[in-house]
């Protein structure tokens, strides 16, 4: 505790971000079908109390309609923040994301903007099975026009949501909802007052010298592994992108220049996944630095089972992460 910071959970950080930004900019409003009760799985009472129903638009369950109408409202100069709950639910709105949100600026020759923030959760460990466990960020990384954000800590969640509300590209914000309580249910000290986390900037969570480890939507599990490996004398540098698009390749490259090794841990699938993009970028620009092959630890190309005993084996497990790191560090030509 200090006079300059205060402890918040991941969810509280998000509510703080909305509160501060909605006070600053009257164009910001909320849309969601769990409003007025909750937004992003967090109680929304304080927001409703302060900003009233006029800035909390209640919707039916109509993902395509909601995303499309948010696009329209954004084209009119407002800044909708849309709660889509789970990434799996948002598939319904795929056309609206791709053909409307991402393209209306371009198709107007730059005359219209779509400054909307679409928020969805990734929830590995939910035991909810294949239809509720999607991680759609590689798809949206593939579509020109979006900023794709994936913060893992309360600090980054608040800072990136605030940054998203101060720029004019459509944003898809993936919230960490896994496993179980976000950020392990813990609180993190974050600064009092206004701050933002710049979009497109990675963060070095831990300095290290042997291998660069890049976790994507899997920071906490990865850190647990890295802690253990430290006891074995393996020094990992952990670089979390936070923004998946645009990716901060410079930051990862700088780390790989130092360590010569790269392991990417990603809960999306390997084919055209986020880890694939990181690996390809480093192969492309950092080949000369590499002392070992770039390794990916991902969720295999299979659907997500509901049974806990099965599901726990599907995500990048501590064992698989540790094995990949050891293999990279031990690699000799």
């Amino acid at each position: 505790m200090s006079n300059n910071s205060h402890p918040v959970t991941y969810g509280e950080a998000l509510i703080e971000a909305l509160q501060e930004e909605m006070r600053r900019d009257p164009a910001i409003f909320l849309m969601g079908y769990y409003l007025p009760k909750s937004i992003f799985f967090v109680p929304a009472d304080s927001l409703l109390q302060e900003f009233g129903s006029s800035r909390c638009v209640l919707t039916p369950v109509s993902e395509a309609g909601i995303v499309g109408s948010a696009v329209g409202a954004a084209m009119a100069g407002l800044r909708p923040v849309v709660d889509l709950r789970l990434s799996s639910f948002a598939w319904y709105a795929t056309d609206q994301f791709v053909n409307q949100a991402a393209r209306n600026r371009y198709l107007s020759g730059g005359q219209v903007s779509v400054p909307a923030v679409f928020v969805m959760n990734v929830s590995p460990g939910s035991r909810a099975g294949a239809q509720h466990s999607d991680r759609s960020y590689p798809l949206f990384m593939h579509i020109p026009g979006f900023n794709v954000l994936a913060p893992s800590t309360p600090y980054d969640a608040k800072g990136l949501l605030k940054a998203a509300l101060r720029q004019d590209n459509p944003v898809i914000l993936y919230l960490d909802n896994a496993p179980g309580p976000r950020y392990g249910g813990r609180r993190q000290e974050i600064p009092n007052g206004d701050y933002t986390v710049p979009i497109g900037r990675a963060i070095v969570h831990r300095q290290g010298s042997d291998v660069t480890v890049v976790p994507i939507c899997w920071l906490h599990r990865t850190m647990e592994v890295v802690d253990k490996l430290a006891q074995e004398g393996i020094s990992c540098e952990v670089v979390e992108p936070r923004t998946l698009k645009p990716l901060d390749i410079d930051c990862i490259l700088k780390s790989v220049a130092k360590t010569g090794r790269l392991v990417v841990v990603d809960i999306s699938h390997p084919c055209c996944g986020a880890a694939a993009e990181v690996a390809a970028s480093i192969a492309d620009e950092g080949f000369g630095y590499l002392k070992a092959p770039v390794t990916r630890v991902t969720t295999p190309d299979i659907h997500i089972p509901a049974a806990p005993a099965l599901e726990d084996e599907v995500w990048p497990t501590p064992d698989r992460i540790a094995a990949a790191i050891r293999q990279s560090v031990g690699y000799r030509r």
């Binding site: 638009v57 499309g68 696009v71 329209g72 954004a74 084209m75 909708p80 409307q100």
Partner: peptide, 8 residues
């Protein structure tokens, strides 16, 4: 849907 959002 965008026409509805503009109207909203």
């Amino acid at each position: 849907p965008a026409a509805v959002g503009l109207a909203l």
